[in-house]
Amino acid sequence: MTTGNVDSVEKAGEAGKAREAENAEKAEKAENAEKAVLRSPLGILATATATHGTGGDDDTPLPRLSGFVESVFSPLAYEVSRRCLTERPGDGSRTAVVLASLQGDTTTEDLAGQRMVAGRVHNPLLFMQATANSVLGYLSREFRITAQMFSLSTLDDPVTELLAMADLLLEDPELDRVLVLGVELGGGERVAAVHRELAAGTGRPEPDTPASAGLAAAVLLGRPGAEAPVSVRPAEPYDVADHAENPGAAGHSGSIQGLFDLAAAHRRLLRHGGSHLLATDPAEWHGPAAFTLTAHAPGTNETESHAHQ
């Protein structure tokens, strides 16, 4: 009896401890879920990449946009957006757009700055196109996008920020899709000086993009489902731990290489199926984030691990 009681007490105590542990685990999971970059999986509806002046295979002729001159920033942004929105047309009143670019249109800014210092008359076209809002306005008119549009600058990996932004926006019942894109220009001596200053003491590299080159990548995201044969979700901790043992080299501040990697993985998964681990550069305020892309269409069971660099 006593033993039994003791046993019961002990069992009760053990059960209590187990419940406490379970509750603590649940609380931790809940807290982690709240702090996770993504609360819900996202469906990848389309991806597109374009480069200009890099000498690489992705280099593509860019569209001429009425009212935009001298810089490839806006044509690149428009081109990758156009491809996604044309491939997967949808309701523009339920489509948000988020553009990330560390420094924005440096070509336009530097051209305007040089003209001003030289005492030359300001060019009103450079005024019109100086902000990323302008090309977003152009895009919105072409595709009748009337939902919200944002542009961002982040020193961290834009993949993490853009997916987090899409996750947050798609909690809004008035939105179905979020087009996220990144644009990066090579830039001249001033942009190089900026990167030298940003990289100093961080161990991060400086970009090696040619001065006149530009890169852009876009991903059209929605809620997961039949229309999105590939989904993206936060990676399981053990996948991240495996990856942490062999992390890839960090990219330069604000590099959009991760978006290119995401787009390449998406293309591969559409062809072959399987899943893909995409790890992002660690941010100042949190560690590295990692995402798993999974193809839901029949295909091979390919699993890859890849850190973008």
Binding site: G104, L136, M149, S151, T154, L155, R190, A193, E197
Partner: peptide
């Protein structure tokens, strides 16, 4: 030179105020 970078100003602000947490800079004019 880096003060021209919008996100760098957010880092400077967060660092100067001793705040920990996410930083993000909006550039939409």
């Amino acid at each position: 030179a880096a003060d021209a970078v919008p996100a760098h100003l957010a880092e400077q602000l967060a660092g100067g105020l001793g705040l920990t947490g996410p930083r993000l800079t909006f550039t939409n004019a």
